[in-house]
Amino acid sequence: MYTQALNTSDGDNSHIEDAARSANFQARIDADERIEPNDWMPAAYRKTLTRQISQHAHSEIVGMLPEGNWITRAPSLRRKAALLAKVQDECGHGLYLYAAAETLGTSREELVDLMLAGKAKYSSIFNYPALTWADIGAIGWLVDGAAIMNQIPLCRCSYGPYARAMIRVCKEESFHQRQGFEIMVTLSKGTEEQKAMAQSALDRWWWPVLMMFGPPDKASQHSDTSTKWKIKRFSNDELRQKFVDATVPQAQFLGLTIPDPGMKQNANGNWEYSAIDWEEFNQVLAGNGPCNRDRLAARRKAHDDGAWVREAALAYAEKRKQRQHAQAAE
């Protein structure tokens, strides 16, 4: 149950962890047991997971913005309903993930405040603009496609609440990528203008999507311990390669050209892609992507504009409690 971890949030694990408990913990992980909120865990495991799950949650919530920007302009009522349902799902997924993060002892409000203060990261991909309707197709096809590659292994992550949240997320997201690909198929069969729109979206999203999988294995800071703790089951480069191999034939089906002229298939059937511009990735993470400021400003505005509503709900709940007490006392 989720509540106990919240009750014991402050200062636990700050004492010296004895080697026996650590060894026992690792033995449980090695035996593929799930770690649950009340279980003893190393402080570093708690910290790593809190960071990762909350970043994942922030990404879902910030990820609502680029697509949300097209809900009011979706070109048919069928597309409008599908897009609204999809962006709503993302909100739900953020919600499930914050709940999973909270079981580790930090409240959602605290986690959200960190994000709004610019002190927590979210996926770099959402700092790029969704310029045309084709971007909605490309986001569903590529961004959701990449997200699924990342998320399916997380369904077997060692931390129970995270794994369970991911199972629910993956189940619900199964329509997201199909929704995007269907848009791309329609565009690729459309007018010259529509085909050009689709190609331009692929051109703009391709490299940022490859960056979504994170830095190359040789440069990644967190991979070793995350792998040992079975938070991460595949490396960044492995997942990236899997994604590229799955996506190239889909692009060919659409008659679109992946913006990497140097790309070639090797003897094993894997598609070898050219060097990724990690400087761009680092700049976007550092806050210098095309939309970082807009995204944070939009989240802050929603949060600030909503403060009086949340206060009103809490104030009413308090009044109602007082009245019930008063009635009971009569």
């Binding site: 919530i61 609502m64 913005l65 949300g68 809900i71 939009a298 504009d305 949340r310």
Partner: peptide, 11 residues
Amino acid sequence: CGHAPMMEEDM
């Protein structure tokens, strides 16, 4: 969508 006072109300 994406701008409600809390996530629960966004849903």
